[in-house]
Structures are given as structure tokens and as C-alpha cells.
């Protein structure tokens, strides 16, 4: 039976993004790393990041970027999480008239494309909360 493959290991679970919290400078980062990208400390703990946030910037990608096999157009933007992080992310909405500054967004693990053997490749993305 065809399975599901995350586009990359260690980025997300079905429920949340996997980030890191630095015990030295107290800042969060994404993706999780063994060294804090902001202060260089190795005292970092893997944490589940919030699955909700607010929209900070967005656009729609109208032509397939290099190496991408999914459909266009697709939404692309920055979602601000309560941990004080701005995450670069795919958006589940590409109709820009439905997006606005500060809009409530929710994590959605979404299909990217299907491989020849039927495996569905999924990635993290955010969608407007009212649609989720």
C-alpha cells in the first residue's frame, strides 16, 4: 500500500513543527538544531512549536521553482509564532485576496506531490484558521 513520506525528516510531526529552545539565550529556533543559531550555545532542547500563529508576509508562487514537482500557484509566506519566531512556510491559500496582515493561521501538513509508486510526499504549511 502506498505510504506517506515527509519531505524531510525532523521538521514536523503530524501535529506540530519541531523546533529548539536555547537554555542560554532563551530564544527559539526552527528547524531544531544541536547548536543555537543565535548565540552558539549547545544547551538546546527540542520542543514542539505552537501550531497556530499570525500572518506576517505572503505572496503566491506562479511558476514552478527549481526542483519542485507540485502544482502552481501555491501560497508562500511568513507566519509569526507565539514563541517569537517567524517561519518561512508554504501557505495552503494562494488566493491573495483571502489573506491579510495579522490573520490567524494554523499548521497543516499538506500534500506536495505523489511519487511514481504512489507515495504521497507531505510538507508543513499554514492555512487560515477559519479553513482548518
Amino acid at each position: 500500500m502506498p505510504g506517506v513520506r515527509p519531505v524531510h525528516e525532523g521538521l514536523f510531526t503530524p501535529e506540530h513543527l519541531i523546533g529548539g529552545r536555547c537554555d542560554a539565550c532563551r530564544r527559539h529556533h526552527f528547524p531544531a538544531a544541536t547548536t543555537c543559531p543565535y548565540c552558539g550555545s549547545t544547551a538546546v532542547t527540542e520542543v514542539a512549536l505552537s501550531d497556530t500563529g499570525t500572518l506576517w508576509a505572503w505572496t503566491a508562487v506562479t511558476a514552478p521553482p527549481p526542483g519542485y514537482r507540485g502544482e502552481v500557484p501555491f501560497g508562500f509566506g511568513v507566519v509569526e509564532l507565539p514563541e517569537g519566531l517567524r517561519v518561512i512556510t508554504r501557505l495552503g491559500e494562494s488566493d491573495l485576496s483571502r489573506l491579510s496582515f495579522g490573520q490567524a493561521m494554523k499548521l497543516d501538513i499538506a500534500p506536495l506531490h505523489e511519487e511514481d509508486d504512489g507515495t504521497a510526499v507531505v510538507t508543513y504549511s499554514f492555512v487560515p484558521s477559519e479553513c482548518a
Binding site: 519531505v7 508562487v61 521553482p65 527549481p66 526542483g67 519542485y68 508554504r90 510538507t123
Partner: peptide, 9 residues
Amino acid sequence: WREEAGLAA
């Protein structure tokens, strides 16, 4: 993987 995810746009 970033290319595959469409993040190389």
C-alpha cells in the same frame, strides 16, 4: 528537500 518543498522560489 527545500527545492522539493517549493522553498527554492
